[in-house]
């Protein structure tokens, strides 16, 4: 087995757009769940809306900044639409409503009725909406190598996209770091612990939950944009499993920590690619087909999620003491 190639693949995936997109989505989910205690089971819906917002507006001729704005705006609207009616209800309703709403977005997006706008189930090809982003790159069109990784400078899964993506992740972390340590973040954590207590102290819990839902959703949308800038917009590539993976990433890294979602995303993709690559190299194809290796990878993801909750519920960066109190 070629371990050099395997590790190059792992490194490539860890720093790639998928890991970036999931890191952004998990940062958003962290604001929802880690900070505020909102159970958002529809983060993929936010991602998908962001992706559609960006792609559809670009295709319609919007400049890059406007397309980003539309993506963010779509997530804000979605959050308000979901949050205004449901955040007053019991917590588990939000979970059901968000997962249902995300599915609705996906089903409507892939529906034949909207083929003109969204491309139906086939989606929108990357080339139809990537040009404005690629044109904004300061690099010449070329292929550059950095260490073992060689990528195009501008096209699709490019250095340009990676740089922009990681800058976005860094900014998001900075923002969360600032907010967590502010009185605003304190109110959110209070809501996570017991929203009635916070209400009794004169805080408008509803408004704070809505703010958290919107902010986290915006990060989801940005993640969605990064996700599709590397490939194409397809409703089905941002379905329920994406939400579940995001949860795994968040819990792996550690909810309610600033860097947990980023670390989680790096490890998640590294581990997945490593396991697949390793099995592919070590097990002959007659025993396990390539697809079956993929399935094993996903079985492992599921089991990891279970084992995490059982053995290390605070994740890698979380505070064990903090969690022990919750269990009591």
């Amino acid at each position: 087995m070629d371990f050099g190639q395997l590790f190059t693949n792992v490194l490539n995936e860890m720093t790639g757009p998928t890991a970036i997109a999931y890191a952004l989505a998990a940062i958003g989910l962290n604001i929802h769940f880690g900070l505020t205690g909102l159970i958002n089971m529809g983060q993929a819906g936010f991602m998908l809306l962001g992706a559609y917002g960006f792609a559809v507006s670009t295709i319609a001729g919007a400049p890059l900044w406007l397309a980003f704005l539309v993506a963010v705006g779509a997530a804000v609207l979605f959050a308000l639409l979901l949050g205004i009616p449901t955040l007053k209800l019991r917590g588990d309703y939000l979970a059901i409503v968000t997962i249902a709403a995300a599915e609705i977005v996906r089903m409507v997006g892939r529906s034949t009725a909207l083929t003109e706008l969204t491309g139906g189930a086939e989606g929108l090809t990357g080339n139809s909406f990537k040009s404005t982003f690629q044109d904004a790159s300061p690099f010449p069109d070329d292929r550059w190598a950095l260490g073992p990784i060689t990528l195009a400078t501008n096209a699709s899964n490019s250095w340009w996209l990676r740089i922009v993506g990681w800058v976005l992740v860094a900014l998001a972390c900075l923002l969360v770091w600032r907010l967590v340590r502010s009185p605003w973040g304190r109110v959110l954590r209070g809501i996570r612990e017991d929203e009635d207590a916070v209400r009794a102290l004169g805080k408008n819990v509803y408004s704070y939950k809505l703010q958290a839902l919107v902010l986290g959703g915006v990060f989801g949308a940005l993640g969605g944009v990064v996700f599709v800038l590397a490939s194409s917009v397809q409703a089905d590539s941002l379905g329920r499993p994406v939400t579940f993976n995001t949860w795994t990433i968040l819990l792996l890294g550690g909810a309610a920590t600033v860097l947990g979602p980023v670390l989680g995303s790096l490890l998640f993709w590294a581990a997945l690619v490593f396991v697949r690559g390793f099995l592919r190299g070590a097990v002959p194809t007659e025993v396990l087909s390539v697809q079956q290796v993929e399935q094993i990878g996903w079985v492992l993801v599921g089991l990891t999620l279970v084992l995490l909750i059982v053995f290390r519920p605070q994740g890698i960066l979380g505070d064990k003491k903090e969690l022990a109190i919750n269990a009591r």
């Binding site: 995936e13 757009p17 892939r110 990357g126 080339n127 379905g239 329920r240 994406v242 690619v273």
Partner: peptide, 22 residues
């Protein structure tokens, strides 16, 4: 290839991927 609608690692392979989901 990168330019086409090639699914990213998740969508082509995820078992729960909802293209199969529905």
């Amino acid at each position: 290839g990168d330019s086409g609608p090639a699914p990213s690692p998740t969508d082509g392979t995820s078992p729960g991927d909802d293209s199969t989901g529905t």
